[in-house]
Design a protein around this nucleic acid. Structure first.
Length: 478
RNA sequence: CGGGAAGUAGCGCAGUUUGGUAGCGCGCUUGGUUCGGGACCAAGAAGUCGUGGGUUCAAAUCCCAUCUUUCCGACCA
């Protein structure tokens, strides 16, 4: 243990400075790097690969549910963005605008898309004319730009990668169903591959998306007690359709405006993964999004038989469908252990002379640190099994933390105490924005959502004393 | 956008107070010995000191501006 050496590479401990720990992990696990423009980051291969796993999962689910991928332009003429009033008001302050092209001034300056509702609407107006053209279920993978004042890697950037689904429906019911269906898919994403238990709910009027009639979100709870909005789905009704003149002739022969939804998740999910699962040794990746699921580390690799045995392991694991990497570099095993722990690789496979002699392989789980010795012939089977076990353990751990950090509060002092502890403060709410504002003012906490799982536990709103209508989760948020 | 802190080799830093032509550790390259928790020896390569101005015979060092990062607030995915 050469203290000096450790120090140069080590990350800040979570308990010393959680924010610094987060930034250290982002950089040292080689997920991203900074660029020379504030808020614009470089997604490095290891970080991008995690995003690709998320894309793979979602693309599959989107396509199963009838959606098609498309691609819209990067720029929106100012006049186009202005067509829907609430929408412009919401986004205008954070737009990046280009007003020179080829050295000439552009009369209708081009906004770098902060979101693409308007582009989709303009297009939909052209291609929708009959109920037979509906539904339109489009999704786009792209990046968007929002001129943020405070930026943090993945959590809040001036540019971020995301998917945005934009759909048009014949009936209100169908559109509302779509809005909830997509939220369900996001929830599945958390359960199936991110190992993050999300809380689903509806946003309050105050927290709603600009131009939406209803906004739903999945919220994740971070270990520092703050909530992270991790995905949203919106029901728009006919607002945009009317503003953009999108009409179709219905089954009854009458002209009508279609009902619209949009929904998205972004690379902010990487931030959620890092925080929810990470520890003082670095990243801990959920197996199903890990770019490398198992790393093979040969020990005493110059000794005859070790490298061939390691390569055989690599081959066997690859054939079993595991994303495996064999590190044959001449770093010492100890160095490699630390390196792949930093990078959050779920399973380490050690193979050295001792193992070979005994016909075994040593496996180490990143999430618990536990070491397991298995027979050589059973490695593939065991590693595949471990993927599932580790995933479940990680989900369970996050879930327990979540359950332990939802506190029902019946008074302001109780709320203060709960918010100081960290996590959600579950409160009965009268529905007035004034009470929401009051909480913000007193505790810097916002209404994260009105959870689907409503279960009233009191009669009155503790802020104003009026009759309570909804269960709301308040929390400090990213 | 307001208040702190910081920018010197890939990473972490010293040098700035008192101006004099840039250094340490790790990493990197080459050769060799090593290898079950961040190995060792030897020889090397690598920095217009964030950027732009200014002061000076001389600026990493002093002055002004600006950019980026970071922490704390206000605003937002």
């Amino acid at each position: 243990m050469e203290n000096k050496q450790i120090k140069n590479q080590a990350i800040t401990r979570q308990e010393d400075d959680f924010a610094q720990w987060y930034t250290d992990v982002c950089r040292k696990a080689e997920l991203m790097d900074y660029s020379s423009v504030k808020g614009f980051i470089i997604y490095r291969p290891y970080g991008y690969a995690i995003w690709e796993e998320i894309q793979n999962y979602l693309n599959k689910r989107f396509k199963e549910t009838g959606h098609q991928n498309v691609y819209m332009p990067t720029v929106i003429p100012t006049s186009l963005l202005q067509k829907e009033k609430d929408h412009v008001e919401g986004f205008a302050p954070e737009c990046l605008v280009a007003n020179i092209g080829g050295g000439q001034k552009i009369d209708d300056p081009l906004i770098i898309r902060p979101t693409s509702e308007t582009l989709f609407c303009e297009h939909y107006a052209k291609i929708i004319s009959s109920y037979r053209d509906l539904p339109k279920l489009y999704n786009q993978w792209c990046s968007v730009v929002r001129w943020e004042k405070t930026t943090r890697p993945f959590l809040r950037g001036a540019e971020f990668l995301w998917q945005e689904g934009h759909t048009m429906h014949e009936s209100e019911e169908e559109a509302r169903t779509e809005t909830l269906k997509m939220l369900e898919i996001y929830d599945d994403l958390g359960r199936d591959i991110l190992a993050i238990p999300f809380t689903k709910g509806r946003k309050t009027e105050k927290e709603k998306f600009a131009g939406a009639l209803e906004t739903y979100s999945i919220e994740a709870l971070m270990p520092d007690g703050k909530a992270l909005q991790s995905g949203t789905t919106h029901y728009f009704g006919q607002g945009f359709a009317k503003a953009f003149g999108i009409q179709f002739q219905g089954r009854d022969g009458k002209l009508n405006n279609p009902y619209q939804t949009s929904w998205g998740v972004s690379t902010r999910l990487l931030g959620a993964i890092i925080m929810v699962h990470g520890d003082d040794n670095g990243l801990v990746l959920p197996p199903y999004v890990a770019p490398i699921q198992a790393v093979v580390i040969p020990v005493a690799q110059q000794k005859p038989g070790v490298i061939p045995a390691a390569r055989e392991l690599e081959k066997v694991l690859k054939e079993a469908g595991v994303r495996v990497y064999l590190d044959e570099s001449d770093k010492t095993p100890g160095w490699k252990y630390s390196e792949y722990e930093m990078k959050g690789v779920p399973v380490r496979v050690e193979i050295g002379p001792r193992d070979i002699e005994n016909g075994v392989v040593t496996l180490a789980k990143r999430n618990t640190g536990e070491k397991i010795t298995v027979k050589k012939e059973e490695v593939a089977e065991k590693v595949v099994e471990l993927m599932d076990i580790i995933h479940k353990e990680m989900y369970e751990k996050a879930h327990r933390y979540l359950l332990d950090h939802v506190t029902e509060v019946r008074s302001l002092p109780e709320m203060e105490k709960a918010l100081n502890k960290g996590g959600y403060s579950k409160m009965m709410w009268c529905g007035e924005q004034a009470c929401e504002d009051k909480v913000k003012e007193l505790y810097q906490a916002t209404a994260r959502c009105m959870p689907f799982n409503q279960m009233p536990f009191d009669e009155t709103c503790p802020i104003c004393g009026k009759k309570a209508k909804k269960v709301v989760l308040f929390a400090k948020a990213y």
